[in-house]
Design a protein around this nucleic acid. Sequence first.
DNA 1: ATCCCGAAGT
DNA 2: ACTTCGGGAT
Length: 354
Amino acid sequence: MPKTIMEFCEINSFTDQLIAWQRKQGRHHLPWQINRTAYRVWLSEVMLQQTQVSTVIERYQVFLKKFPTVKALASASIDDVLSEWSGMGYYTRARNLHRCAQVVVTEYQGVFPSDPKLLETLPGIGRSTAAAIAVFAYGQSAAILDGNVKRVLARVWGIQDDLSKNAAVNQLWAHAETLLPHAPEDLVSYTQGLMDFGATCCTQNKPACISQGSITCPFEDVCLAKRFDLIKHIPLKVKKVKVSTVNIDWWVLQYKDKLLLEKRPHQGIWAGLWSFPESIDLPKSAKQLERQVIKHVLTHRVLNIRPIQVTLQRPLTKIPANCEWIELADLKNLGLPTPVRLFLKNLDLIHDDA
DNA sequence: ATCCCGAAGT
DNA sequence: ACTTCGGGAT
């Protein structure tokens, strides 16, 4: 019989070994790891929720330069924020980021609270992000549990439950709490270690223990998933959402040096971003040019987009709701969904210089 | 259940 | 070139 969960917990070797691993093998020079203010930690955490480290490194620096403080972000317009967020997806989070900044300024005098429970009340900050800010910026003791951490804990302790179920996740939260180091000076290394270990060693598809790389996992001899050859089966994913196909048209109306764009509603796909109108009344004389259908894949939906290009000789008599004529030169300052940006780039109507 | 993109896999 | 999949908050 292998060493049991209890033994492994009691000797607390997971926590100690992870801290040691972090100090030797972890990442120490990411932009948000130096000068860990709450604002910088928060921004990096929100970006990292949806985007890989390599991409965030770039976007984080640009964003910080544009909005150096929580006050600067709070007083910016939402369109400026969305424009800066453009291409990163999950635009509701950019709106939450903006709202959160405003709450911090008006309710907390521009200083993020240090209590994880208070942090959690802020827009876009859930339990895990609240804990990360509390640990990194304020040295508080709190447990994180993001996708990486779930995977690591589930594997090391051989948890085969369906992690899409609340019951299983609640167990993991409780477990994560018990693993926290007791010495305050260890909290940052431990928490960062949890993130780094999941991101670089105990990865989803090619974890170190089953790859031939140079990295070796410090938990190989105690990890239950490894012992029972369950690495490929943990974490268990049961989710099976059926994906629907949606066909839409993009009416690409050009008049002189202007394009007709529609500002999308604050809820739903591409919230608050500018896209092409999907239905329109046209003068009969206008000549239509159908472009190649664009396939765009989302979590639970596949969009088949049929762009129809129309070059107008006269302006429209009536501008449709939520639409505006946008100068080609102004396109780069707008929040555009990625397929719109790509399409415009293909037509050579927009250039990517920052 | 919904929301976007890009890295990784085939 | 194509498809699949990971990532938290609401």
